[in-house]
Deep mutational scan, measured.
Amino acid sequence: TTYKLILNGKTLKGETTTEAVDAETAERVFKEYAKKNGVDGEWTYDDATKTFTVTE
C-alpha cells in the first residue's frame, strides 16, 4: 500500500511517499524521515487517503 507524508515544517515543506504493509509501518518510516530532516510537530493521519501530515 502506498502512504503519503505531507511536511508542513517551518523551513521545509513538501511531500513524499512510501510503500508499507500497514499504517503503523509507514508512520515509523515517515517519523524517521521527518526527524532526519529536522521537522518535529503535530502528526495527523487520514485513513481514507492514507496520508500523514506533520505540522510545525
Results as ranks from 00 to 15, higher is better:
A23S: 10
K35W: 15
E24S: 12
E15G: 07
E32N: 09
N8K: 12
T44M: 10
D22R: 04
Y3N: 00
K50M: 09
T51G: 02
G41E: 01
T51I: 06
N8F: 09
K10I: 12
T53C: 06
A34V: 09
Y45E: 00
Y33E: 03
Y45H: 02
N37S: 09
K36V: 13
L7Q: 02
T25F: 08
E27A: 14
K35L: 13
T2V: 12
T51R: 03
G14E: 14
N8L: 13
Y33N: 02
T51V: 08
R28M: 11
N37F: 15
L5C: 06
E32K: 08
E15R: 06
E56N: 05
T25C: 06
I6A: 03
A20Y: 03
V39S: 03
F30D: 00
E15I: 12
K31V: 06
E27C: 09
D40K: 11
N8Y: 14
T44G: 06
T17G: 04
T55G: 04
T16H: 15
T18L: 13
V39P: 02
V21M: 14
A34C: 07
E19S: 12
D22E: 05
Y33S: 02
K13C: 10
T1N: 09
G38L: 09
R28A: 15
L5Y: 02
L12T: 13
T55Y: 09
L7S: 03
E42N: 10
T18R: 05
T55S: 10
E19F: 13
I6F: 08
T16S: 13
D22T: 06
L7R: 02
A48K: 14
W43H: 01
F52D: 00
E32R: 08
T1G: 09
F30L: 04
E27S: 09
F30V: 02
K35E: 08
E24Q: 14
T49N: 08
T53I: 09
L12M: 14
E27M: 14
L5Q: 00
E42W: 08
D40F: 13
E24N: 09
Y33L: 05
Y45G: 00
E42S: 13
F52K: 00
A23Y: 15
K36R: 14
L7F: 12
K36E: 11
A26I: 02
L7H: 04
E19P: 05
A26H: 00
V39C: 05
T11L: 15
V21Q: 12
V21H: 12
T51L: 04
T51E: 04
V21T: 12
E42P: 05
A20K: 03
T51H: 02
E24A: 12
T44H: 12
W43S: 01
Y33M: 04
Y45Q: 01
L12K: 14
V54I: 08
D22I: 03
N8T: 10
Y3K: 00
T16L: 15
F30T: 00
T11D: 12
T18D: 03
I6Q: 06
D46T: 05
E19Y: 13
V54F: 05
D40R: 12
K13W: 11
A26C: 02
D40P: 04
W43M: 04
T2I: 15
T2S: 09
F52Q: 00
K10L: 13
E27F: 15
E19H: 10
G14F: 14
K4L: 09
V21D: 13
L5S: 01
E15D: 07
T2C: 10
G41W: 06
E32V: 08
K13N: 09
T49S: 13
T53V: 10
A26M: 01
A20D: 03
V54Q: 01
A48N: 12
T49A: 10
E32W: 07
G41A: 02
L5G: 01
E19W: 15
K4I: 11
N37Q: 14
E15W: 13
I6N: 04
V54E: 01
N8S: 09
N37Y: 14
K10V: 13
V21Y: 14
A20N: 03
A34Y: 03
F30A: 01
T49L: 08
R28V: 10
D47A: 11
G9N: 04
A23V: 14
K50E: 03
G9W: 05
T17P: 02
N37A: 15
D22H: 04
K4S: 07
G41H: 02
N8C: 06
T53R: 06
K4Y: 14
W43I: 03
T11M: 15
F52Y: 07
T53L: 05
K36G: 07
T44Y: 10
T11A: 14
T49C: 04
T1Q: 13
A34N: 03
T51W: 02
K10D: 07
D40T: 12
G9H: 07
R28C: 06
Y33F: 12
K10G: 05
G38E: 06
K10N: 08
T44N: 11
G38H: 10
K13A: 07
A34M: 04
L12D: 05
Y33P: 00
T16I: 15
V39H: 04
V21C: 08
E32L: 13
N37C: 07
T11G: 10
W43C: 02
E42L: 10
K10A: 14
K4H: 15
G9R: 04
D22P: 01
T18M: 14
V29I: 11
G38Q: 08
K35N: 11
T18W: 09
T1W: 13
K36T: 14
T53P: 00
T11K: 07
K4D: 02
K4A: 05
Y45D: 00
T16Y: 15
D47S: 11
D47Y: 08
G41M: 02
T17R: 07
T55E: 07
T53N: 05
K4F: 14
A23H: 15
G41L: 02
Y3F: 11
D47C: 05
E27Y: 14
T25M: 13
A48D: 13
T17D: 05
A20M: 03
W43Q: 01
Y3C: 01
N37K: 14
F52I: 01
K31E: 04
V21E: 13
T1I: 11
T11Y: 13
V39W: 10
